[in-house]
Nucleic acid binder design. Structure first.
Lengths: 200, 200
DNA sequence: CTGGTTATCTGAATAGTGTTCAGATTATGG
DNA sequence: CCATAATCTGAACACTATTCAGATAACCAG
């Protein structure tokens, strides 16, 4: 760790900002959001410890930036996953709804440390960006609208659909990740959620 | 911070282990679970930096220990809160059910950094202690049983009651805490949950 | 009361950390 | 081709976790 991992040919790195982010993500994945080290990033990228400060005022800013990055990745993951179930049928709407939850959970299980970074207070939203602008939130709303439109869910549950679903999926992912619930509990949760929301 | 905060009269502290935990909780409350410093704890307690290592093998162990401590505190907080609504009526059962969620959320809002420590991967359960032994989990189950027994909730939702409720409350607390949902969303969530579970 | 045993705590040292800043390097535009 | 601006380095500062030999004092047997 005290040796440069990458030897550059040019004095300028060329794409340092992105390289720092990628290296940081890699290290967070391995060691967790705490235990991230600016110096280790530098060694990995092949740059002096102070170079990173040209792009990020401090470590917390870098972590917040990575948070943004990851929220976009999660959203695109969800987008991709529901593309497998197109169509306007009630059945398709239901499959999409369930798949959103599954994709969210899959992300959490596959990348526990990144999930912890996103929702563990390391990148608290500035309250400026409304949650309603969040890509995942928009997709969830669309899925719920489709459920109602296709008659797969009674409209009386619609106003609470977003908050119930998002909270459930987030909470179950969190609890399972931290060992408070068994891994197989997630499908049970989705069963229960659909039962309670009258999805059929 | 480079000066001892407490001057002891005796060489032995007397109750160092507990003092360390209390000081750590205080500092985590102020600075977050990351940003906890062993040395700062030492200064606060009035002891040399190495003294703590007689009770905790390393920082992560201390944090895990504090996690245990906090889970017990949360459980007792919930216990106290539902004692305000005794009785065997459907109305009392419903009030207790709702109060469990409220107490959980109140804790999260009042102690965001402690909540983050508990559920942010800093003290991952060893999988040994079953979640079914968790005091909060037991209380929630009791509350759900009471709902069914008093006819305040259809029994068909009972099997999913625990996981749905716990996930919802946990997820909403988490999302609100990190700025992904507005603070007033929690009561909406409880409304939606009771509507979906047919609680009346 | 005495002396040895043991738990407790200190001091110093090692190795690693975030962060700053003057200066070295080099890409870029005139 | 040269000046300017962007980029990166090196060294420094103050701080961190952790280890360990030794100092201290509580405790217990005689």
């Amino acid at each position: 760790m005290s040796v440069l991992k990458v030897s550059r040919d040019s004095y300028h790195h060329g794409n340092l900002q992105e390289a720092i982010i990628q290296s940081a993500i890699k290290l967070i994945r391995k060691n967790g959001p705490d235990h991230l080290s600016m110096r280790e990033i530098s060694y990995e990228v092949g740059v002096s410890p102070s170079a990173a400060y040209h792009y990020f005022p401090d470590k917390d800013s870098l972590v917040r930036g990575i948070g943004q990055h990851l929220f976009a990745e999660l959203a695109s993951m969800i987008t991709k996953s529901i593309e497998k179930f197109p169509g306007t049928s009630a059945r398709a709407a239901k499959l999409r709804f369930r798949e959103i939850g599954r994709a969210y959970f899959k992300w959490a299980v596959k990348e526990p440390n990144l999930f912890r970074l996103m929702f563990g207070g390391f990148c608290s939203s500035d309250e400026q960006t409304s949650y309603k602008a969040d890509a995942s939130y928009i997709m969830l709303n669309k899925a719920l609208d489709d459920l109602v439109a296709t008659g797969a869910m009674p409209s009386k549950f619609r106003p609470y659909g977003e908050i119930l679903t998002w909270s459930c999926v987030q909470g179950a992912s969190n609890l399972i990740l931290e060992g408070h619930l068994p891994k197989n509990a997630f499908e049970d949760l989705l069963d229960g959620l659909e039962l309670a929301l009258g999805v059929k």
